[in-house]
Amino acid sequence: MLEALSSSQRLKTRFELLPVLVRAANVAGLAIVILLLVTIVASLAPGFLSPFNLFTLTRNLAIDTVIGFSMMVVLATGGMNLAIGSIGVCAIMATGYLLEVLGLPIVVSIAGGLAVAAILGWLNGILIVRTGIHSFVITLATASLYFGAMLILTKAEAFRELPAAFNALGKARFGPYSALLTVTFAVGAALLVLFKYSLVGRQILAAGANPVAAKLSGTPVERVIVVAHVLSGLCAGIAGVMVAARLAAALPSVGQDWLLPSFLAPLLGGTLLSGGLVSVVGTLLGAVLVTVLQNGLVLLKVGSFWIQFFLGLTLLVAVGLDRWRSVYVQRAGLKR
């Protein structure tokens, strides 16, 4: 009969060490690398720990992390979003327009900019699920489309007369750190709740890991993919508004260099390119690594060409190590 004879003994609810260790190894490894890097940079470049540098560093970190989150949300579905930079700049220009031309209150203007970003993300999602074309192709196209449309509408003219109160956001401090970090932490916390505790977040991960099985288990796969793209757009918008506050202007040239950081942070942090697994903390740490590296190289007066070189190298080394680790785990028979 079905009465389990000894299932209660077998089914231990204690948590299991190995997978936790394997997962933690990534985050812990990243944290160690960051500590090492900080120690090295701080000892070589005395300016590193100065209040001024910490402020710049954390302000860049705040922005790059949210850019990373923007990609992470879509990586969760097993797709990608190459239009993050274009969506970001559209949000910037929309916010700038609402602030400067229409003279709307700051909160309303920011909300307007974020709404534009969310709508553009939604459009990406709809195009992807309706056509069934891979997100790579769709967002490659919309990246150019959104950017072009923005240039047409704004005639590539910047908004430079933003209200002082808005610009102050970019200068706001919290001790020596940029207050923009609070926005980043809030977004991170929201994403953590989303992926760990919410129905939609779990469904996004299920759809990313195996869309067929998810669908046959009653998950509205197409809908959650659209949701993920809306969230991605929203994050891109938030990053955009932060950039506008930092620059004290809405420039149409922003966003075109977001592609690399958007992938770097989540991939360094252990988010899978194939979908179904994300790490919010990992993405944050990944962004820390990239920002510290960039900042350190600047302080050490390494030319900016080299910075590009090192960022590319970091990504290769990181994913290479990760690949080696998973192959090793498999060879050792940890996964049978």
Partner: peptide, 24 residues
């Protein structure tokens, strides 16, 4: 393996997927 389960996800999530909408 292809249609019934999400192999890379936990036992809990694979079983829970049909009832998530009733929780919380």
């Amino acid at each position: 393996k292809q249609e019934g389960l999400i192999l890379a996800h936990s036992v809990a999530k694979n079983t829970g997927i049909t009832i998530w909408h009733r929780l919380g």
